[in-house]
Every structure is written in structure tokens, then in C-alpha cells.
């Protein structure tokens, strides 16, 4: 009988491990970010074009990741994109005139938000909006602009 108890224990452990693995696959691999920052505050920024930015993309300050993009939505009144970011609460002293730009890792890598701090004495609080923004550079537009200017210059 003691033997049977040990056997049932192992089978129970096996089933638990299997279910945990499925849970890891569902939550950790397929989405649902638990978030590695425990305390965060939210700021928003408006962009004319977010390019290939996606939710959960990193938010960097001086190249160091301090937050993540949590939501991207359209402001129907102004026809521009509102990007919501959660920033680690340890960095709660970002100046009010911080600027946000959408940058690319490498030439064709994934996109992220880069913050550039200003010199204002007032700090960004939870729910504030970053006023100075720079949209994503769309490579196709850049190339077509270059080609058109070349063509015009040649005439």
C-alpha cells in the first residue's frame, strides 16, 4: 500500500508538471506579459505614424530599457496614433519636455520607443502625455523621396 502511495504521488507530480508546462506555453510563450517591472506608471505619446511598432516593444532611455509599450490605438478626432507606455517607477523623474521617437534596432530590426530627456524642472506623472514626438521612419517613403528628388534634379 505504501508503494501505491508513492506511485500515485509520482503520477500526480507528472500531471502537475505537464499542466504547468502547458500554462508556461500559453502565458509566457504565447503572450500575457506578467511584466518584469513590479511598479510602473503610464505615459502616452502621439505619433503621426508608428510604423511597425507593436505592443510589448521596449521603451529605451539612453539605450537602456526602462519600460514597455502597453497599447497602441487611434485617436479618431486627430487621426493619429496614441501609444501608451508603462515606465518603471524607479525612473519617475523624467522631465516634462522629454521627447519620444520611434527608432529601429539595426537597419531592419524590430522597432522601439526612444526617450530623450529635456531640461524641464517639472516631471512626467502617471497619465501625462509626451508632447514632443518623432514618427517612425518608413523606409519605402525614404527611398521614394530620394528617387523623386534625384529625378527632379536630373531635369
Amino acid at each position: 500500500m505504501k508503494n501505491k502511495g508513492i506511485l500515485e504521488f509520482w503520477v500526480g507530480l507528472f500531471v502537475v508538471a505537464g499542466v504547468v508546462a502547458l500554462g508556461v506555453l500559453a502565458f509566457k510563450v504565447a503572450g500575457f506579459s506578467g511584466g518584469e517591472f513590479t511598479q510602473t506608471y503610464k505615459i502616452t505619446a502621439r505619433f503621426g505614424n508608428v510604423g511597425g511598432l507593436s505592443t510589448k516593444a521596449p521603451v529605451n532611455l539612453a539605450g537602456v530599457r526602462i519600460g514597455r509599450v502597453t497599447a497602441i490605438r487611434i485617436d479618431p478626432d486627430h487621426y493619429n496614433a496614441v501609444v501608451e507606455m508603462s515606465i518603471d517607477s524607479r525612473y519617475d523623474n523624467l522631465p516634462m519636455d522629454t521627447s519620444a521617437s520611434i527608432l529601429t534596432q539595426g537597419l531592419l530590426g524590430s522597432q522601439f520607443v526612444g526617450l530623450n530627456p529635456g531640461g524641464d524642472e517639472i516631471h512626467l506623472e502617471d497619465g501625462d502625455e509626451v508632447m514632443l514626438t518623432q514618427s517612425a521612419v518608413v523606409l519605402e517613403q525614404l527611398i521614394s523621396q530620394m528617387l523623386f528628388s534625384k529625378a527632379e534634379g536630373g531635369e
Binding site: L22, L25, A26, K28, V29, A30, G31, F32, S33, E36, S54, K56, A57, P58, R65, R68, Q105, S110
Partner: peptide, 23 residues
Amino acid sequence: DAGVYWSGMQEGVDLYADILNGV
């Protein structure tokens, strides 16, 4: 980067299309 590893994964893997079909 650890964040890029996980976020790229979460962006590309779908719960129903990938994980459920695998199961």
C-alpha cells in the same frame, strides 16, 4: 536581450493557431 527574446516570442506565437494546434 531577454526582453526582446520574450516579447518577440509573445508577438509571434498565437495561443490558438500555434499552441492549441501543437497540442
